[in-house]
Each structure stands twice: as C-alpha cells, then as structure tokens.
Design a protein around this nucleic acid. Structure first.
Length: 423
RNA sequence: GUGGCUGUGGCGAAGUGGUUAACGCACCGGAUUGUGGCUCCGGCACUCGUGGGUUCAAGUCCCAUCAGUCACCCCA
C-alpha cells in the first residue's frame, strides 16, 4: 500500500454510513423545528479569524490549528470550530439587517491537531447552532433544552448537563483577582503548569488533576459568588427557565470553557462510558464576539456537539437506531440473452423503488443465489435459457424458500404491488 | 508536546532463537447435472509495520523509526 490515512482521521465505510445519515437526519429535523436554518461556510478561513475569534491564549490557537500558506502566500487555517466562521458569514453578508435573532445551524468536519485518543480525532464532525441578537436568558435555557431534545430523540440516556456562568468581562476580572489573592501566599505549592496559569488564566487551575492543586483551590471563592448583579440575575433566570422546561442540570462552578469568547452561561453535556473524552456537547453565550469581529454589538449563544462522540455513546448504551432494511431483489440470469432480459427487468424494478442487484461476473446459479442470500434479498428472479424461451421467470421468495413461475410481463407489476404493500 | 501498551494473511489469533509460520472466521471453488442459509472437501501469505544491529541461525533478542491504541494536557 502506498500510504495510509492521515493520523487521527477516519474513513467512514459503507457499513456504518447509515448511522451517520440517520443521525444527520435527526439533527436537521430538530434544528428546523427550533427555527434554525442551515449555513455552510468554507472548511478553511483566513487564520486571523480564529486567532482573534477563538482567542490567542486558547489551546486551540496556541497548538492545535492546521495552518498553511496557499500559493498566494495567504495564511489559511482549517476550521477548528464552527462559531467563528458563522459569525464571519453573518457579518460578511450583513444578515443582521434581517429579523433578529438570526438562527443558524451547521454540520461538518472540524480539524484540530491533537494526539488522537478515544473519542478524539484530528478530523471530527460537529453539529452546532448559533443564535445572534438576543440576550434573553430564556433563549439560553431553550438552547440547552434543544440539545437535550436531540440526545433524547436519538435514544441516549443518563446524560448530565453541567452548568456554570463565567460572568461578563467585569465580574470575571474581579473574580480573577479574588482567585489570585486567595492563592497568592500558596504560589509555591502549585504545580508548575498552574504556576503559569496563575497569572495568565487562574480559572484554569480548577481543571488541574493534581490533588495538591485541587486542595489549594477547594476553598477558593467560586465564580458564582463573584458575579455582578446583572450576571447573577441572568444566571438565576436561566436556571428558572431550565426548571420550567424540566431539564435537569447540575451546577459546576469549575466548568471553564476553553474558548475565550464565552460570557455568562457556559454548559457542557457529559456522557459516561466512552472514555476520558466524555463531553458530547457544549456551548454557551458569547455576548461580545460579534462586536469583536467587527460587527454590531449583538449578543450570541450557541453550542456544538461531536458526532463521533454521539455515535460512541449510542454504541456504549446499545441503542439500536431505527434504520430500515432496504427492500432488495436479486436478479439471477444465466447466459447472455437472459442477462439482457434481466437488465431491462432490473431497470423497471429500480424505477419502482426496489433495490436491485444482479450478477456481473457470469457466476453459476448457485453462486448467484448465495450472493442474493448475503444481500438479504427478499426475492430472487431467476431467468435461465429455458425460462427466456418460454417468456417466464422464476420468482423465488427467499425467506420461505418458495418459488413460482411467473409470466415475464407480470413480474414487474407483481413486484411493484408487493413493494407498495410492504411500505 | 509527554507517558503506558500493541504491531504476524481481509479480520481475529498461536508462536517464549533453530527444518515447508498453527488455528478460527471471512472469501473463492467443489460435493449438488440450473437453486442460498446447514454439513463435508479443497483453495487462498514475495517483505511476520519499517530500517538497522547481535547471532552459525531472528517473527522470536537489541536499537531506531513509523503506525495503532489508551491516558495526560485540552476539548467535540
């Protein structure tokens, strides 16, 4: 073999594509009924969009981007997430001139240069939604409810919504300072990474796995105690609405989303049993991103879910997706002349909706029936030289191992009727 | 970027330095002269990831490298 697929990428083979189609169908359906419209943006963008949009100090920008120069020396980057591109398109086409809030959804591949592991790939797929133009906490709650609605419709259970508010720039700054003050005399006890985080982004210390660091922040003030009046009010309303919508959630004041643009509501949906990468979706509010990208001061909120992780969770929970088996007919013809007759029959049946397979290798009848069996054909039409001369075919019902002789002109109408009945 | 484990036919998997590298599944063919799913028989490997080394002798030992996998970091 010349080479293999690039590290961290996957081929989705015919055997699993039905699951993807089903998943995508549900996603689109739910998105539409919640009033979101699909948007398709390029797979790559100018690098600065992500640098500025996602944030210079994030892991994504610091070490995970697929960035390259094109032949015109432009720096381009394979999109690592969908929000920045959606905001860019929203502004570029001045869609804010239309009715607000403007609501979009997207499905497609994203790219991050990470070390692959269970549930994490360098090319992965996300479904996401973005709503621009409303600061209403009711929208926050609805967006979370919508995500849960999707998981529920897919048949997933035992998911946990983790909820937090990361505040606005004002209260976050106050919180940072409070946190730094809390840790100021224990700086030397922190692990080396957290010593770095202390000045750059002290909130990240909550994510540290070291028991030492955990202890040090255990009695630290949490963000929910430090929210400004406005943010606290917003956060409590979000929770009220969630309760109204009967969406269970748990507060996690340590939930710090890794993207810089989040404000106020941040949430993550976590599944168990799919490995260390257990977050199957997450999102939040980003009230300053649109403005920071050079647009009007419009608030925004959105989330993204990882399709590979959803599929993993479906597998883990042994959910069987309602994927209908295809109605197949196998056309077994023997000899050149019979093949011609069979070819015409096949076309007619296909036009009627049957999935028709036939033999292209000149195989024996036995081998053709074996093929029909393997394809799980409902019927096999057998045409040999004898049948052809008499103007008949053999119509064999595979599951029952029963067959009948059928006039050539009757076989299509008869199978069309059977096809319509089984649907 | 760091660490653990793994790398033998399409897939799974024996092989613990010494003649032609087990086996199972899958696949193809035959027993059945024109009829599938069961059974029986047969067929199916140029490099044992790659490159180097040790040895009379290496799939088996050593080194390197690549890949897979899981975990850290972070996230979907």
């Amino acid at each position: 073999m010349l080479t293999t697929r690039p590290r961290g990428t996957n081929d989705i083979l015919p055997g699993e594509i039905d699951k993807w189609h089903y998943l995508e169908k549900i996603l689109r359906k739910v998105a539409e009924v919640y009033g979101y419209q699909e948007i398709r943006t390029p797979i790559f963008e100018h690098t600065e969009l992500f640098q500025r949009g996602v944030g210079e100090s994030t892991d994504i920008v610091e070490k995970e981007m697929y960035t390259f120069l094109d032949r015109g020396e432009r720096s381009l980057t394979l999109r690592p997430e969908g929000t920045a591109s959606t905001v860019r398109a929203f502004l570029e086409h001045k869609l804010y001139a239309g009715s607000l809030p403007a609501k979009f959804y997207y499905i497609g591949p994203m790219f991050r240069y990470d070390r692959p592991q269970a549930g994490r790939y360098r090319q992965f797929h996300q479904f996401g939604v973005e709503a621009f133009g409303s600061p209403d906490p009711g929208l926050d709650a609805e967006v979370i409810a919508m995500a849960m609605d999707i998981y529920e419709q897919l048949g997933l259970r035992n998911l946990n919504v983790e909820l937090n508010s990361v505040g606005c720039p004002n209260c976050r700054q106050a919180y940072r300072e409070a946190l730094q003050e809390h840790l100021s005399d224990k700086l030397s006890e922190l692990c080396p990474t957290c010593r770095g985080r202390y000045s750059k982004n002290p909130l990240r210390i909550f994510d540290c796995k070291s028991s030492q660091c955990r202890q040090l922040v255990a009695d630290a003030p949490t963000i929910d105690q430090m929210l400004c009046e406005e943010c606290a009010e917003h956060f409590s309303l979000v929770q009220e609405y969630l309760q109204e919508l009967q969406v269970p959630y748990s507060l996690n004041p340590n939930l710090v989303r890794g993207l810089d643009y989040y404000t106020q509501t941040a949430f993550e949906i976590v599944a168990q049993g799919i490995g260390a990468q257990s977050s199957i979706g997450g999102g939040g509010r980003y009230d300053h991103l649109v403005e920071e990208c050079g647009g009007p001061a419009l608030p925004g909120i959105g989330y993204a879910m990882g399709l590979e992780r959803i599929l993993l969770t479906l597998e883990e929970q042994k959910v069987s997706l309602p994927i209908p088996t295809k109605a197949r007919v196998f056309l077994a013809a023997l000899g050149k002349e019979a093949q011609k007759t069979g070819g015409l029959l096949a076309q007619k049946l296909r036009n009627a909706g049957w999935v028709v397979e036939r033999d292209y290798l000149g195989r024996s009848l036995k081998a053709q029936l074996k093929a029909a069996d393997r394809l799980q054909a409902l019927y096999t039409i057998i045409i040999g030289e004898e049948e052809r001369q008499k103007g008949v075919v053999i119509l064999r019902k595979m599951q029952e191992s029963k067959q009948e002789i059928c006039a050539l002109q009757d076989v299509v109408p008869s199978l069309v009727k059977k096809f319509n009945e089984q649907i």
